[in-house]
Simulated assay, not measured.
Amino acid sequence: MASREAIEVGIVGCSGIAQIVHLPILAQLDGTSVTAVCDIDIAKAETVAERFQIAAAYSSIEELLEHPDLDSVIVCTPNHVHAEHTELALQAGLHVLCERPLATSREQAARTLDCARQAGRILMVENSHRFRPDAWALRRSISNGELGQVFHMHASWQRRRARRPRISEWRLSREYGGGVLMDLGVTNLDFCLWLLGYPAPERLTAYLPDRDGDGVEDTAVVLMRLERDVTCSIEVTWDLAAVEDQHSFVALGAAGFGSLYPFVIQRVTPGGVLDMTPRLAPGSENIYRASYRREFSYFISVVQGEREEPLPEEQEVLLSIVEACYRSAEEDREILL
């Protein structure tokens, strides 16, 4: 396909994130056109199609995959069917951008990656945090040694209680891949590992309390040791009693320090501590929406053949960590990986 041709996209699952983030951004992107949506709630799919002026609405992914001229799909369904829906689309010859996580187990992720290899199609996992300019600047500082040997990473995402999932939501079902570890924790785990180049995990301990007794953890605290004697701590919760969500991200190195909230990079020199924080171009758009926009543009450019993107094989590592976290919490012990 010529790079200037518009890529036709189908949206699988008319969830909140599809309506609030994906569809509004995709509608403004050059080189792409959303031509079909599907949802098991056909009334929702039809309403979304009408709202965003999309040609077709279907009640199943199987129907959507028969829509003519589709090039790719974006999977926005609940976690437990991400792998299934991704594999169906790949087998139909379409490229896929799947909301994180790719699967709910390492075994499932491995099977989906094999499916992408066999199909010869592009598969990306939605990790919009990787498309933030401040994150890229910090990653460069780590990789080029400005911080010295990084020995600890810490990431925290504390969501205010007013935004916690409602009783009817799939995020409160372990069967559906719910729980705060899968909801918020996988993002912070990937963030830390990606910034470091995905070093191999060696051991971890996790605490996953279900304070509300609704069947899934509402808080997750994970302490992990990686190769090269690097440690990593993750804290996420749905139960912050505050007006606004709180975020923290810190990288500690032998010769420097990096932070994203606020964005700061500092290095120790013989003359004292030097501020190495690069100036980033100001933007008028919310940083999270802007990162999604960059990721969608990148995905479209890969589909158009303008860039190459390897398969997200690190998803196997990520899901093996998640599985070990649940084992650690259930067995109340450290898990060797």
Rank of each mutant, 00 (worst) to 15 (best):
S233L: 04
S233V: 14
S233E: 02
I234V: 12
E235T: 15
V236I: 05
V236P: 00
V236W: 03
T237K: 04
T237H: 01
W238I: 05
D239R: 10
D239T: 15
D239G: 05
L240S: 08
L240G: 07
A241W: 13
A242C: 10
A242F: 05
A242W: 15
A242N: 14
V243C: 02
V243E: 12
V243H: 08
E244I: 13
E244K: 15
E244R: 15
D245F: 09
H247C: 12
S248R: 07
S248W: 07
F249L: 00
F249N: 00
F249G: 06
V250C: 00
V250Q: 04
A251N: 01
L252E: 08
G253D: 10
A254G: 08
A255G: 07
G256T: 09
G256E: 05
F257A: 01
S259K: 13
L260N: 02
L260E: 03
Y261C: 03
P262I: 03
F263N: 03
F263I: 09
F263P: 00
V264N: 04
I265M: 04
I265S: 01
Q266R: 15
Q266G: 03
Q266L: 14
Q266S: 14
R267Y: 01
R267A: 12
R267L: 01
V268I: 07
V268T: 11
T269R: 10
T269F: 07
P270D: 00
G271K: 06
G272M: 07
G272Q: 03
G272R: 08
V273F: 05
V273L: 06
V273K: 08
L274W: 11
L274A: 09
M276T: 08
M276D: 07
T277W: 09
T277Y: 08
T277C: 01
P278S: 04
R279Y: 07
R279M: 11
A281Y: 04
P282H: 00
P282S: 00
G283Q: 08
G283F: 06
G283E: 08
S284F: 04
S284H: 11
E285L: 15
E285S: 11
N286Y: 12
N286V: 07
I287H: 12
I287G: 09
I287Q: 13
Y288H: 11
R289Q: 10
A290I: 05
A290Q: 10
A290K: 10
S291E: 02
S291D: 00
S291V: 03
S291C: 06
Y292R: 03
R293N: 07
R293Y: 11
R293L: 14
R293M: 04
R294W: 06
R294C: 05
R294L: 09
E295F: 09
F296Q: 03
F296S: 05
S297A: 14
S297L: 05
Y298F: 13
F299R: 02
I300D: 01
S301H: 06
S301N: 08
S301W: 03
S301D: 15
V302H: 02
V302Q: 06
V302W: 10
Q304C: 12
G305V: 10
G305H: 07
E306I: 14
R307D: 01
R307L: 14
R307P: 07
R307Q: 14
E308D: 08
E308C: 11
E308T: 07
